[in-house]
Simulated scan of single mutants.
Amino acid sequence: MSIAKESCIKRQEIFQGKILHVTVDTVHMEGVTQPAVREAVWHGGAACVLPVTADGKLIMVRQFRYAAGKALLEFPAGKLDHPGELPAECAFRELAEEGGVKAGELIDLGYIYTSPGFCNEILYLFLGRKLTPTSQHLDADEFLNIEQYTPPEVAQLIATGEIVDAKTIAIFAKAGSYLQGV
């Protein structure tokens, strides 16, 4: 059987939060008579930035992630704050908020779906260069440490399982050609 397009024929609203919206949808699939049920999480999108210092270090943040139950080492990232916010604006903001630096140059690395089996979240990826220090201004409930690593060190931390955050692994892979010789 070929890939069938699915369309929603009935939606049950389960939860509406500040960050996400959850539904249980009954869908019709082309070429199939029996409808199927899809649980879906709807998210407004986010941006992640891999900041590279003038001396070739990568700025990362270590923060406790409640759902994971532990602190994770990641590149700075955050959700788009409002409909219509440009992903690059979000990347600039999050880099300053979490990383304490401004980027003079942002390079678009594309985007990824974080968990397309049940969630529509798109995460826009950027490489930040020409960094200058600025004041870090975290949210009231946000606590993190800023750390710096070389690209080979990040590769090793991924290989050994110290870095397990999917967006961090994805952006590191997407930025590979920019990190050669750094």
Rank of each mutant, 00 (worst) to 15 (best):
M60T: 03
K79A: 02
R93F: 04
P83G: 03
L58H: 07
V101E: 13
G69M: 11
L86K: 06
L80S: 05
R65H: 10
I112V: 15
G99D: 12
I107Q: 03
E98D: 14
E85Q: 15
L109R: 02
A67Q: 10
Q63R: 12
H82K: 11
I107A: 04
G110T: 04
E89D: 13
R65E: 15
L72T: 13
P76T: 02
L73E: 01
F92A: 14
Y111N: 10
A67E: 10
V61M: 03
G99F: 04
F75L: 08
L86N: 11
R65Y: 10
E74L: 11
C90K: 08
F64D: 12
H82R: 10
L58N: 01
V101N: 07
Q63W: 01
M60C: 13
A91G: 10
A91E: 13
I59K: 10
E74P: 01
L95Y: 05
L72E: 11
R65V: 15
L58E: 09
V61F: 01
A103M: 15
E94Y: 04
C90N: 04
F64S: 12
E74I: 09
F92N: 03
F92G: 03
V101Q: 09
V61N: 13
E89Y: 03
D108F: 07
C90Q: 12
L106T: 01
E85K: 04
E97R: 13
A77L: 15
E74R: 14
F75W: 07
L95Q: 07
A88K: 05
G78W: 07
E85T: 03
L58P: 09
L86R: 09
G104C: 14
Y66N: 11
F75K: 02
G69S: 02
L106C: 08
P83W: 06
A68N: 08
L95G: 11
G104S: 12
K102L: 12
H82L: 05
L109W: 06
I107R: 04
L72Q: 06
I59D: 00
G110D: 00
L73G: 06
F64Y: 13
V101M: 06
A103G: 05
V61E: 06
A96F: 08
P83A: 01
I107P: 03
H82W: 08
E74M: 15
F92C: 07
K70V: 14
E89A: 02
L73S: 01
V101I: 01
I59H: 02
A91M: 04
G110W: 00
A96Q: 15
L58V: 01
Q63F: 07
